[in-house]
């Protein structure tokens, strides 16, 4: 239902969420009272230093972890378990099923969820494999692919499902600079095409500005919200421009302010 200003309601609502890991000896608070909203068509970026709980937050949204405090809902329904309406591209390379070829890997979730079957699923899979430029490798098993190629398969697999929201955990972190840039451009082109909604995790400020339309900046461990910024106006062509650099500087200062304060405190103490 549209609100007073005529905007559609957000599809993903994260409200005061605290996520914790309990091991036999420790209790680790990964994120503390994080809130944000993602609207349809957003390229929403979670940005923060390593270990600040970005992956954890994504796992929460995916339904693999339940919050100890706060609530998360997708289209008004509380998130309580994983499901194919939130497809995840993991940070790790071993997310492809080694016993299936590239094509079968892309088809697998479609058939599991029963969304598409048989020839239709195969056709969709081929279409998205082509989009990530892996047509030649469709019938190859994952162990014969490079790390970046595996990641692209995972992206194709997630996109082909047309999820409500696409969850991507540093999908390009392990790629070389050239491939990464190409993949970022492809993602933007695809977005122009399909207008999916994506929640994207990265620790690269530059990548956040280029890929995202809105950035949630998280503080170091445990992750808390530091700021939410707009960056829909920037793409690769804006890179190096003054506005781009101002924003980059601003985020940089935000992320490293604490360290500078801490260092000063150390120096005085």
């Amino acid at each position: 239902m549209p609100d007073a200003a005529g905007n559609a309601p957000p599809i993903l609502k994260v409200d005061g969420v605290t996520l914790q890991y309990k091991t036999t000896e420790h209790l680790v608070t990964a994120t503390y009272r994080v809130s944000f909203e993602v609207h349809r068509g957003d390229r929403f970026v979670l940005l923060g230093p390593s270990g600040c709980g970005k992956s954890t937050l994504l796992k929460g949204v995916a339904g693999f972890m339940s919050p100890v405090e706060g609530a998360m809902s997708l289209n008004g329904r509380t998130i309580d378990r994983p499901g194919p309406d939130r497809m995840m591209v993991f940070q790790e390379f071993d997310q492809l099923l080694p016993w299936k070829t590239v094509l079968q890997n892309v088809m697998f979730p479609m058939e599991c969820a029963g969304k598409w079957r048989g020839a239709e699923a195969a056709a969709r899979a081929r279409h998205f494999i082509e989009k990530v430029n892996l047509t030649k490798f469709a019938d190859v098993y994952p162990h014969m692919l490079s790390g970046g190629m595996k990641q692209r398969v995972a992206i194709a697999r997630a996109m082909a499902m047309e999820p409500e929201i696409l969850l991507m955990d540093e999908p390009y972190a392990a790629l070389d600079a050239l491939t990464r840039r190409k993949m970022q451009e492809e993602l933007l082109e695809l977005w122009d095409d399909v207008r999916f909604t994506v929640l994207f995790v990265t620790h690269s400020i530059e990548e956040a500005i280029v890929v995202g339309s809105r950035i949630l900046v998280l503080s170091p461990h445990p992750g808390r919200v530091k700021a939410e910024l707009n960056c829909h106006q920037f793409d690769h062509t804006a890179q190096g421009g003054t506005e781009f650099q101002t924003l980059q500087r601003r985020i940089h200062d935000m992320l490293f302010a604490e360290r500078i304060e801490a260092e000063e405190a150390d120096a005085h103490g």
Binding site: A62, P82, P84, M87, M88, D94, Q95, L97
Partner: peptide
């Protein structure tokens, strides 16, 4: 079996015997 593979499977809505 690695956590990533488990999560990938659950992500597709697989549960129980399947």
């Amino acid at each position: 079996v690695s956590d990533t593979l488990r999560m990938a499977g659950q992500n597709y809505g697989l549960r129980g015997v399947s």
